[in-house]
Design a protein around this nucleic acid. Structure first.
Lengths: 165, 165
DNA sequence: ATATGTGCAAATCTTTTGCAAATTC
DNA sequence: GAATTTGCAAAAGATTTGCACATAT
């Protein structure tokens, strides 16, 4: 058994459950620390992102936000996402374009992790390991490139779908 | 020095030059092996992709193709890219959306490699190492997920741009 | 008072699709 | 002649933008 591995399969677009090694620092605190103005709508959006057990796309985030503030606009959602991404507080994922070209978002975690997307059922399996951390360090060392964001995604078939065929 | 490392910085959207460990099997042969009909236009498009030293996006590919066949249509380009992707002959990259939402393509190599995109100058640094191969194996082993495609991308600043600031 | 955030509607950018004509087997 | 590929034009989907108004410091 490899140390530090965090794997968890979940249903459709789910997120790791037994994920004890990964923590998600408070977005609100991070925003405050960066002296970003926290408006009512931003608080709402950030709360939804932080609390969501799933990877959200902009349309879903808007929909969820509208349940609490029907007046909130799509543009505000996109502008807030851009802000959070710019400050490095959320990660933008493509999830191998398993659902078209839209992006998915998740609060930045203390530790980078990979996403594996099942082409058949859409399940997302998350995975973190020290090997990933080592690889990143190696990349930086060997290339001299200064890494700000990393994204490791894979597409294929989850365990369940492999059996089902 | 780590073994098997292939690193090369290049100018804007360039590709590794001293890339001896990485080979690109002939797309034409692969197509033939899969009994895919090879039309004039497909041959043209595939030739451009295979021969290009850069990561191409659909619009650029269309533009290059039109120099030789002005009649070729955008839809054909997209349809051919979809075909090649489906057969696993090309890889689709996002390059951290450094130039908008479009995709970039490259002929599949014998060995997976990462792409690091410079947010400042747009340079693409490619990197392959045995650590990446090990990580992939570990992911499969630990998660039971069957990987068909992997993409490891990073965004940040290349060596030159770090110095320039 | 000044800077910043928001809603609205329209625009933009990339990719996909329906259908008739052309091409290939 | 049947099946596949292509061009054309229009549609679709996701994201961005200009501008006037509202809100916060």
């Amino acid at each position: 058994m490899v140390m530090g591995v965090v794997v968890a399969a979940d249903s459709h677009l789910g997120r790791a459950k037994n994920d004890t090694a990964i923590t998600r620092p408070s977005l609100m605190k991070e925003l405050a620390a960066r002296r970003v103005r926290i408006t009512t709508q931003r608080r709402l959006l950030v709360g939804i992102i932080q609390g969501s057990p799933r990877h959200l796309d902009a349309a879903t985030l808007l929909e969820l936000a509208r349940k609490q503030d029907p007046g909130i606009d799509r543009a505000t959602v996109y502008r807030t996402l851009a802000l959070l991404k710019d400050r490095g507080l959320i990660d933008e994922l493509d999830l191998m374009h398993i659902e078209g070209e839209k992006h998915f978002y998740e609060a930045k975690t203390n530790r980078d992790h990979c996403h594996m997307a099942c082409f058949r059922c859409g399940a997302i399996v998350e995975y973190a390991s020290s090997s990933f951390e080592r690889l990143k360090k190696e990349m930086v060392k060997q290339s001299g490139f200064q890494i700000r964001v990393v994204r490791l995604e894979a597409g294929g078939f989850c365990q369940r779908c492999q059996k089902a065929s």
